[in-house]
Write a protein that binds this DNA or RNA. Structure first.
Lengths: 156, 156
DNA sequence: TATTGTTATACTCTATAACTATA
DNA sequence: TATAGTTATAGAGTATAACAATA
């Protein structure tokens, strides 16, 4: 018997097998990676990353926030927020305003350009999400989101 | 009117709001992070990380593989595989054997200790997964895995 | 020439510790 | 004393480029 690969019988597999695809950890990680790729491509024309869009969304949809409040809403460190804001401010998408009532704080607001970017980028991101769940039925996609939210909120 | 937080009306929110939790990207990322934490804790007693368990599983469940084949199955770079194997081999969980039929290659095999670790660590990881999906019904948890596999496999 | 394993290096993302100015 | 923003630094985790041995 030859030791060579027998191409007539079985092509040498290169991808993940059931020992991985059967595990929830693998599925979550790779689903996240795929959607992140799709989203990155969709957002590229607007010059923002998915993480930057998340920062903008957190600043857009609630009362004006300090840097630290914004970081808290996103679950990231305040030092990480500094870097995000430096970059976003440099591109004119957000502005830091000293808080008159507590001069240690900056209130961070979206500029006009920032608001427009949020509108366009959100639409592009939603579109990527729609393509991502295209293999599922509408109700199955909704069920997926419900299930994910449930485990996130109810897990210790 | 005071500028202080009015605790009687509304506690200052610190977590994510619907602008984030309504997005699939956020849900996938944070579900993955939570499960990864649970799994890390569950695996700690066995001295392996989730990624190392994935490497071991890939070596355990199919024909013996070269380092590069194993990397291909996991979707990681071959240079990354070198580092994993250095560490796993240092702890006696895997062994590199020169491939007699192609002396550029190493065939990587699990040791006895490696096989035992796979058994125990897999059980612990499965248990973490079960706790993670505890908020869902049995069929809803199964549906979650089906949906994730579908989007992973069918998305461009 | 091409491929396997290896090394050195670099890049991304994030956090920790220490500094400053304000409170 | 404690907190908000900042800076410098460090640690994961991963990839790219170049090298030696072998095909």
């Amino acid at each position: 018997m030859s030791h060579e690969t027998r191409h007539d019988q079985r092509v040498e597999e290169d991808g993940p097998g059931p020992e991985l695809t059967g595990r929830l950890g693998y599925l979550l990680k790779h689903a996240q990676l795929r959607l992140a790729e799709l989203t990155a491509d969709a957002l590229a024309p607007y010059g923002v990353t998915g993480r930057e869009l998340a920062v903008l969304l957190v600043l857009a949809d609630r009362e004006p926030a300090s840097q630290q409040q914004a970081a808290g809403r996103l679950g990231i460190d305040r030092t990480t927020m500094v870097a995000f804001l430096d970059s976003l401010e440099g591109r004119g998408l957000v502005a830091r305003r000293p808080d008159a009532s507590d001069r240690r704080r900056n209130v961070v607001v979206l500029t006009e350009a920032g608001q427009e970017t949020v509108r366009l980028a959100t639409r592009a991101s939603d579109d990527a999400e729609r393509r991502f769940v295209a293999p599922l039925t509408r109700s199955s996609a909704a069920e997926l989101k419900r299930a994910l939210l449930a485990v996130i909120e109810k897990t210790p």
